[in-house]
């Protein structure tokens, strides 16, 4: 019985995630294919202008976008879905003969690494600081932290990134802005070694700092108000009357319940951080998927652009799904009531 309800909640979440990915995939297909002045037509037009015969131009377009133009639209769409399911995203226009999937495999892990580490640090840090603010509410420490939190979360993340580069990099020379670019130093290969990890963190440091700074404020404020309201709950009062130790009450009764609302914002935060990666990675020239997306957009490399957009969306959907799962595990009430 309970198992059934449990699988029900998870099942519904899974269906929602899959539907979202499917809708976005469909949307991009028709956007690329049907929009007036769509990239496909433009590509064929430019080829024609360069003197390529129509048939060959169409063939080239077809192989780039993995769409067989001679087939009816619906079948093209089905082919597209089939290819997607196989992880086949076509070929890059700019770096000829490079499959898009290869580009994604090369650059996506770096972005995921930076985003995961940042969210982890800011989530944990925000929770700790939020609890401190709640416990010492209205004291100077709370007032300073609240002030900083609300200021820093209203500054656009790319502005902070620029300021870090210009002030700490160019002016104070705390780091070499040319050397810190990229995701690894030249010659360093991914492997299980301290040397590799150190180098990876060195290059990821700046984006991580920016993401942490721009997201920690909202965690702090949400955690603070959530903790304050949890402290007033009857079960906390009763736990004190039960003679439970203060430290145990703070962890298993207060903090444990107060973090639950944060998981709802976690989904939004993941989307925002991943979504901001084209900007942040461009500013730091960090070799992640976001930088590749902005490159693809400037060079009008549509197959790459389309695929990266899809993969970014899919990552966010998967991350949201995981956050939902985690919330389902942490909050027994949600498994039975929220679907």
């Amino acid at each position: 019985m309970l198992k059934k309800i449990l699988s029900n909640y998870f099942f519904i979440r899974l269906v929602k995630a899959l539907v979202t990915i499917f809708v976005v995939a469909t949307f991009t297909f028709f956007l690329i294919r049907l929009m007036p002045g769509n990239p496909l037509d433009i590509f064929i037009a430019t080829q024609l202008a360069q003197g390529v015969p129509l048939q060959e131009a169409q063939e080239r377009a077809a192989s780039l976008f993995h769409i067989d133009l001679s087939r009816p639209m619906m079948l093209q769409y089905l082919d597209y879905l089939k290819n997607l399911a196989r992880g086949d995203f076509g070929v890059s226009i700019i770096s000829t003969n490079t499959p898009v999937s290869k580009i994604i495999l090369r650059f996506l892990p770096w972005t995921l690494f930076v985003v995961t580490v940042s969210l982890f640090i800011s989530f944990i840090g925000g929770i700790l600081l939020g609890v401190v603010m709640a416990l010492y509410r209205n004291s100077w420490i709370d007032q300073i932290l609240s002030f900083l939190a609300s200021i820093i979360s209203s500054i656009p993340n790319y502005v902070i990134a620029m300021l870090i580069v210009v002030y700490f990099g160019v002016k104070l020379k705390w780091f070499n802005i040319a050397e810190i670019r990229g995701s690894l130093s030249p010659g360093v290969k991914p492997e299980f070694s301290l040397y590799f990890l150190k180098d990876a963190f060195y290059h990821a440091m700046l984006p991580i700092i920016v993401y942490v700074l721009t997201t920690i404020g909202s965690w702090m404020l949400v955690m603070k108000s959530s903790t304050i309201s949890t402290l007033g709950e009857d079960y906390v009062e009763v736990a004190k009357a039960r003679g439970i130790k203060e430290s145990r009450i703070m962890t298993s009764y207060v903090a444990r319940n107060a973090i639950l609302p944060l998981f709802v914002s976690l989904a939004i935060s993941i989307g925002f951080v991943v979504g901001g990666s084209p900007l942040i990675e461009s500013i730091f020239v960090y070799q992640g998927i976001g930088l590749k997306l902005s490159d693809a957009i400037t060079t009008r490399d549509y197959p790459v652009m389309q695929a990266i957009f899809l993969i970014i969306t899919a990552s966010v959907v998967v991350a949201n799904f995981l956050a939902d799962l985690l919330l389902g595990v942490l909050d027994p009430r949600i498994r039975t009531s929220r679907n």
Partner: peptide
């Protein structure tokens, strides 16, 4: 006092409906 509470003197405040930690 912590030792005394609940072992010698049990005090059940109003609001038994919310007396339990919802995640335990």
């Amino acid at each position: 006092l912590q030792k005394l509470r609940w072992s010698k003197i049990v005090m059940m405040a109003q609001g038994a409906l919310n007396a339990f930690n919802p995640v335990m």
